[in-house]
């Protein structure tokens, strides 16, 4: 049993269909529990007060932003090197999910920054690199949107994803350097205490919930894409109109 057995969309569908609903339900339970503990059943921070609760939504989203880009690059590499068709589908499906996690991280970070730093946006090193990451996601999706031929779009988008992934550490390093040169880092280094167990539990629950949510959304999106392609093939067959659904 190798990863190539999943290249068969039929087999993928057989595996994905039964776990689609349970993963979605599990994600809802985990995120629900994480939100309950994070928002209602955990202590406020001695320095940040109640605003620390934004962290339970924000920090896991930032983790997912990075994890999704890694997954995107890995799926792109598999798709590019071994021409694994499902890897292309997975990479394409990962991008919008990762972009939304990145946007959530940026927006919640901004909401947290307003009371804590007194400003909606600071050109802090982390904020800036996450913003650049967001643009990398948008560029990747722009390639898919611009090229009609799916097979070609998949491979060109894979090149963009891999080249971007190789650049991520360099961008991160340069932004850190830029930030330390331009403004004293001491202002925004109020990291607070090492995290307490009562805060760590909801944080990890949320992180787990986001991961399961990612899997659920990824499976749904991939099944959609496979179904859409099958529909297109069927409609392409002469004299057999199958549905009036808009062709992608």
């Amino acid at each position: 049993m190798s990863v190539f057995d999943f290249a068969n969309p039929e087999r993928f569908e057989r595996l994905a269909r039964p776990i689609a609903v349970p993963t979605g339900a599990l994600a809802a339970v985990l995120i629900g529990a994480g939100l309950y503990y994070g928002l209602f059943n955990s202590p406020p921070d001695y320095k940040q007060g109640e605003t620390v609760r934004i962290m339970y939504v924000h920090v896991p989203a930032a983790w997912m932003a990075l994890a999704c880009y890694t997954a995107l690059a890995a799926a792109s590499a598999v798709g590019f090197i071994w021409k694994h068709p499902l890897a292309d589908v997975a990479a394409r499906a990962t991008a919008p999910i990762g972009a939304v996690f990145t946007a959530v991280a940026i927006v919640t970070g901004s909401l947290w920054g307003r009371p804590m730093w007194g400003t909606w946006w600071a050109w802090d090193a982390r904020l800036t690199s996450v913003l650049i990451l967001f643009f990398l996601y948008l560029g990747y999706m722009a390639v898919w949107a611009a090229i009609e031929d799916k097979a070609r779009a998949a491979r060109l988008a894979a090149i963009v994803a891999i080249a971007g992934f190789i650049n991520v550490p360099i961008i991160k390093f340069s932004v850190d350097w830029w930030n330390s040169l331009h403004q004293p880092a001491s202002v925004f280094r109020a990291d607070g205490p090492t995290i307490d167990g009562s805060m760590l539990a909801p944080l990890l629950l949320m992180a787990l919930g986001y991961t399961v949510l990612f899997i659920a959304l990824l499976l749904a999106s991939m099944r959609n894409e496979i179904a859409a392609r099958r529909l297109m093939r069927l409609e392409g067959a002469p004299g057999r109109p199958v549905s009036t659904v808009r062709k992608e």
Binding site: I132, F135, L138, A142, G164, N167, I170, I171
Partner: peptide, 13 residues
Amino acid sequence: ILSGPLFAPALIF
């Protein structure tokens, strides 16, 4: 759109 993020390090340094 594709080149902008990749240009960031060169611009910074």
